[in-house]
Design a protein around this nucleic acid. Structure first.
Length: 500
RNA sequence: CGCGGGGUGGAGCAGCCCGGUAGCUCGCCAGGCUCAUAACCUGGAGGUCAUAGGUUCAAAUCCUGUCCCCGCAACCA
């Protein structure tokens, strides 16, 4: 029994939540739930990034204060997480006092270490990107809204830690995963690393956290947002808590924010003298019908629409089942329906119907006695007992897709077992055998349901309730003969598509 | 020589790090079963694992070259 501290990025409050946000958060939730079932103490952190120019501008446009604007928008995420059954332990907002205090503490410490300096900088500034761009970038003509700007700013000596970071990555093979992302970062670090501009003069942008040693400035995104991972964990405010949880076991991120996490964040931690997270795991993107999801293309998939059509658990299942962690995956309604019908309706849901139907028909609706097992049952029992260990191992390797499919493989072998044993025939000739087979199938289904519970909390709870086996463990033999099976509608009614 | 990802039976994808019968889901064909959500089970057709070399007793898997596809303004997991 140990601890598991998992984080998602904090999402930008101005964004409309989309399938990508939902994916990362569900992934964190699924990992958390698996670890909880293992008896680990879990801390699952997510939250919102609420500062910055875009928030300020959007608020102005609406005639609201930035804070009121954030307060108005944050429920979009909170409600989505509620709908998606996300069981986070803490939800941090960067505008919270507890966070702002720590950001200032961190800035002060880093400054005390001599890692912050000021520089007068004149260059091309991209209003759209809220940052200075290099001459090369300017000449590329790929930036709009560019103007010449000269101003004093604060910089973080990131370059100082370049070699240390390279050495660290080399010495810790699991620090950046999957491996091709690690290689990407090492490639990036072959170039000289620049320093990081970390401030904005209030005159230009004042919706942020004030720099403690210069009240004319607020800090810019990195020291504001990334620090959430430790501010929420108690750094600088609750040492016992921080000791208990930090370092994080995994920062889950999308591949787009790899550099900010692997380079900016880790060098910040170096400066602070705080240990690095054990793993930064970058997953891929959901492509929509083979193209990148983007607002301008108008193909952004809203998770709420999916849930409305197919149900929360099916959406969670699909996302976990379909994406190989680390690679991109492709979303299409058609693949969703196929996955739903074959895995959930035909295999999992239908197995429940077969078992419960026969038990009601031939065994008074009571879980029958297993009697003495034959080799066929011993085989199923062995598979069932082996499943939890297998899943645990896969989850520890972040192979969520394989974990899910290996449960489905077990479900399929239960369907096969039913077919071979044919308890509907046995009921006419050999009632004891019929009982044994149905007990075995029901017990296998129970274990499969428990192993899928982190992915589909509601539907699996329903199955366990039907079996009268809520709060049982994934160990063979906990299903109680004599328990009355509850009546139930089909778990996952097939999605019928009119054939073309 | 910009960077990165990828090319595996009709479709979608694993496997590649740690070489050794090419696997899964869907679709198709045939059969079985008929408890079940026209679901389930069995068998089959279909792949020179982009391509050319190399290493090796042995390569989808390691090395090298070549071709092709995708992403790289912003939004953004």
């Amino acid at each position: 029994m140990s601890k598991f501290f998992v984080t998602t990025p904090i999402y930008y409050v101005n964004d409309a939540p989309h399938i990508g946000h939902a994916y990362t958060t569900i992934l964190a939730d699924v990992l958390s739930r698996y670890h909880r079932t293992l008896g680990d103490k879990v801390f699952f952190l997510t939250g919102l990034d609420e500062h910055g120019q875009k928030v300020m501008q959007a608020a102005q446009k609406r005639g609201l204060s930035p804070q009121a604007h954030c307060d108005d928008l944050s429920p979009r995420f909170l409600n989505l997480w509620k709908t998606l059954d996300i069981r986070y332990d803490d939800f941090i907002r960067t505008t919270q006092e507890r966070h702002k205090k720590i950001v200032q503490l961190v800035l002060q410490k880093v400054n005390d270490n001599g890692d912050i300096y000021t520089d007068e900088y004149e260059g091309w500034y991209s209003v759209a990107e809220e940052r200075f761009i290099t001459d090369a970038e300017y000449e590329s003509g790929q930036f709009r809204d560019v103007k010449k700007l000269k101003e004093k700013n604060y910089f973080f000596k990131m370059s100082k830690y370049q070699q240390k970071l390279i050495d660290y990555i080399d010495a810790h093979p699991d620090f950046i995963r999957p491996e091709h992302r690690k290689n990407e970062m090492l490639g990036f670090l072959r170039q000289p690393l620049g320093d990081l501009c970390i401030s904005r003069p209030k005159a230009r942008m004042d919706w942020g956290i004030e720099i403690p040693f210069d009240r004319e400035y607020v800090t810019y995104v990195w020291f504001d947002a990334l620090v959430n991972y430790i501010s929420a964990a108690g750094y600088g405010s609750d040492e016992p808590k921080f000791k208990k949880w930090w370092p994080a076991d995994v920062h889950l991120i999308g591949k787009d924010i790899l550099t900010t996490h692997c380079v900016y964040w880790t060098t910040m931690l170096f400066s602070l003298g705080v240990p690095l997270p054990k793993t930064i795991f970058a997953h891929g993107w959901w492509l929509i019908a083979d193209t990148k999801m983007s607002k301008s293309l108008g193909n952004v998939v809203n998770p709420l629409d999916l849930i409305e059509s197919y149900g929360v658990d099916a959406v969670r299942f699909y996302l976990m089942r379909e994406m190989v962690l680390g690679l991109d995956a492709n979303f299409t309604p058609d693949s969703f329906i196929k996955c739903f019908n074959s895995d959930l309706a035909n295999d999992f849901g239908n197995l429940l119907n077969r078992v419960s139907g026969l038990i009601h028909k031939n065994h008074d609706g009571q879980i029958p006695q297993p009697g003495i097992l034959t080799p066929a049952e011993e085989d199923i029992k062995t598979q069932g007992n082996a499943l939890p260990g297998k899943i645990t191992e896969l989850i520890n390797q972040f192979k969520v897709q394989e974990a899910v499919t290996s449960v489905l493989d077990f479900v399929r072998s239960l369907n096969k077992y039913m077919e071979v044993q044919a308890p509907w025939k046995l009921a006419k000739t050999d009632m004891d055998s019929a009982r044994r087979v149905l007990y075995t199938a029901a017990e296998g289904l129970r274990i499969a349901a428990i192993m899928l519970a982190p992915v589909m909390p509601q539907k699996t709870a329903a199955v366990l309730d039907i079996l009268g086996a809520s709060n049982t463990q994934p160990v063979w033999g906990q299903l109680k003969p004599g328990t009355i099976l509850k009546a139930h509608p089909p778990l996952f009614p097939r999605i019928e598509v009119e054939k073309k």
